[in-house]
């Protein structure tokens, strides 16, 4: 479903965020990306949907090549949903309008200039809100919702794209443990029931291992670990979080305490 070959990304100024990454994600997999801050997780996700143009290398999603300079980029992008650490909702718009934003790539420009959506689109948006349990909040302003609810709106916005792939950039990092678990539950359900392929970067190792089918570890922009989630052990984690060997343990301790 996602095929990444020989991918390297160098930022202006010479920072090498990704170094020769090769990754093949099959349909229906739930892949969790682990790694320290700055290890290249966000960069990798943004190369998958063309928010960043890689320096070298190729990405194809569902058989379509991702090229951020191509006119047809939107055709790939609308099949890839993305959710963000900071939710990235438009705060002054209603929840329903935020969700409908996920349909824009299927709408005519003239209609969307006047914020007109078809009845089918609105129905789909309500269905997506139902799926994340927020149908009664449809007409509230997005900034009136709690963090966990805002992230669920973010998921609904991605769902109305009717995507095959869902990318998530630390979706639980700004949430409390209860909301985090709820978000992971929803993601897991989407993965199982709708067969979406998930690529999720995370800091919360325990939570990630619990839901993932496969774990990919990044260090200094290189893939240093790629295993089924069940086979990941302490040594693997220490290898990913090498620089300070005690950091995953600290994190695990924190999670267990909560």
């Amino acid at each position: 479903m996602i095929s990444i070959t020989n991918l390297s990304k160098e930022y202006p100024g010479g920072v090498r965020a990704l170094v020769n990454v090769n990754l093949e994600v099959k349909k229906g997999e739930f892949v969790v990306l682990l790694g320290l801050s700055g290890s290249g997780k966000s960069t990798l996700l943004r190369c998958v949907n063309g928010l960043l143009q890689p320096t070298i290398g190729n990405v194809t999603v569902a058989g379509l090549k991702v090229n951020s300079r191509s006119k047809d980029l939107y055709k790939v992008r609308r099949r890839i949903g993305m959710i963000f650490q900071q939710f990235n909702l438009v705060k002054r718009l209603s929840v329903l309008d935020n969700v409908l934003c996920g349909r824009l790539a299927y709408c005519s420009v003239v209609h969307s200039c006047f914020r007109i959506f078809s009845a089918a689109d609105r129905e789909l948006a309500m269905y997506a809100l139902e799926k994340v349990g927020l149908q009664d909040k449809a007409y509230q302003r997005a900034d009136q919702l709690s963090g966990g609810q805002q992230q669920r709106v973010g998921i609904a916005r991605a769902l109305v794209q009717q995507p095959e792939v869902l990318l998530a950039d630390e979706p639980t990092a700004s949430l409390d443990p209860k909301s985090s678990r709820m978000i992971m539950e929803i993601l897991s359900r989407i993965n199982k029931e709708d067969g979406l392929t998930l690529l999720v970067s995370m800091h919360n190792v325990d939570l990630g291992l619990e839901y993932a089918s496969r774990v990919v570890g990044l260090r200094h922009g290189r893939v240093v670990l790629d295993k089924p989630a069940n086979d990941v052990d302490r040594d693997d984690l220490e290898w990913i979080y090498d620089q300070s060997a005690d950091s995953p343990e600290e994190e695990l301790a924190c999670v267990k305490a909560s």
Binding site: N49, L51, L73, Y74, K75, V76, R77, R78, I80, G81, M82, F84, N88, L89, V90, L93, D97, C101, G102, L104, A105, C107, V109, S112, C113, R115, G154, R157, A158, Q161
Partner: peptide, 16 residues
Amino acid sequence: EALEATGANKIQTLVF
């Protein structure tokens, strides 16, 4: 960035 990621074009991103 979120709207760009959905595949919305520049005008749509501006409006929404």
